Amino acid sequence: MDERAALIEPLIPGLRRYARGWLRDAALADDIVQDCLERAVSSWRQRRGDAVRPWLYAILHNLLVDHGRRAPRRATLVPIDMADEVALAVRAEQTDAIEHGDLSRSLDALPPEQKAVILLVSVEDLSYAEAATVLGIPVGTLMSRLSRARDRLAELIGAGARARLRRAK
C-alpha cells in the first residue's frame, strides 16, 4: 500500500459519516465522498503540511456546500412498487425513529455554518483546531458557532438534550 492509501483509507468511514449526516442520503453521500477522494488523490502534491485529516474534511465540506447550493432541497419520490421490499418490511423502533427524526429536523433547521461545526466536532470528533482548519475560520469563531449551535439544538430538541450535545472530552 502506498503512502497516500495508508493515510487516506482509515479516514474514509468518518468522511462517509460526515457526508451522510449532512445529506441524509447514503448513495449521494458516498458519491460525494468518492469525488472528495478523487480530488485528494489528484491534488496530493498540492496539499500544505502533514495534516491529512483536516485537509480531506475541508475538501469534503466544500463539496457538500457546493452541492447544497446547486441542488434544491426536495424529497425523492419513489413509486411503491419500485421501493425496496426489505426497507418496507422492516419496522424501526418508534421512539428511536422519532428521536432520530427530531434530531435530523433540528440539524436541518440550523444554518449551514452551525450544522458543519456540530457534525465535525460532535460527530466526527475533530479537535477545535482541526475543525477550524476544515472550515477556514479562527478557533474562536468555531467555538462561538459551536456554542450557538448547541444552544439552538437544545431549544429545538428540548431542554434535556443540552447535556448530550456536549463533547465527552
Rank of each mutant, 00 (worst) to 15 (best):
Gln34Leu: 05
Ala19Phe: 01
Ile98Trp: 03
Asp102Val: 04
Val52Thr: 15
Lys169Leu: 13
Arg45Met: 11
Ile157Lys: 09
Ala154Phe: 05
Ala132Lys: 00
Gly160Cys: 03
Ala97Phe: 03
Asp66Phe: 08
Pro79Arg: 01
Pro54Cys: 09
Gly140Trp: 11
Thr76Asn: 06
Gly160Asp: 14
Ala6Gln: 13
Thr141Cys: 15
Leu28Pro: 01
Arg162Met: 05
Leu77Thr: 03
Leu135Gln: 06
Lys169Cys: 07
Leu110Asn: 07
Leu165Phe: 07
Arg164Asn: 10
Leu60Thr: 05
Leu11Thr: 07
Gln114Asp: 05
Arg166Gly: 09
Arg73His: 08
Leu107Gly: 01
Met82Gln: 13
Arg105Gly: 05
Arg70Trp: 09
Val33Cys: 09
Ala87Glu: 07
Met143Tyr: 07
Val90Arg: 15
Thr133Val: 01
Glu93Arg: 15
Gly21Ala: 13
Leu103Ile: 06
Lys115Val: 06
Ala168Trp: 12
Trp55Asn: 04
Ala129Val: 14
Asp96Ile: 08
Ala132Gly: 14
Asp81Trp: 11
Asp35Leu: 14
Leu28Met: 09
Leu64Pro: 00
Leu64Cys: 06
Pro112Tyr: 10
Gln114Pro: 02
Arg20Ser: 12
Asp108Trp: 04
Lys169Gln: 05
Glu3Ser: 14
Pro10Asp: 11
Val139Ala: 15
His61Pro: 04
Asp31Asn: 09
Ala97Gln: 05
Leu15Ile: 09
Val121Trp: 00
Glu93Gly: 06
Leu11Trp: 12
Asp81Ser: 07
Leu15Gly: 00
Pro72Leu: 07
Glu9Tyr: 13
Leu103Lys: 03
Ser147Tyr: 12
Trp22Ile: 11
Leu77Asp: 02
Gly21His: 01
Asp66Tyr: 03
Pro138Trp: 12
Trp44Tyr: 11
Arg152Asn: 12
Ala131Pro: 00
Arg152Lys: 10
Thr133Glu: 13
Gln34Ser: 13
Leu126Asn: 00
Ala131Phe: 10
Thr133Met: 09
Ile12Met: 03
Arg150Ala: 06
Pro79Tyr: 02
His61Asp: 08
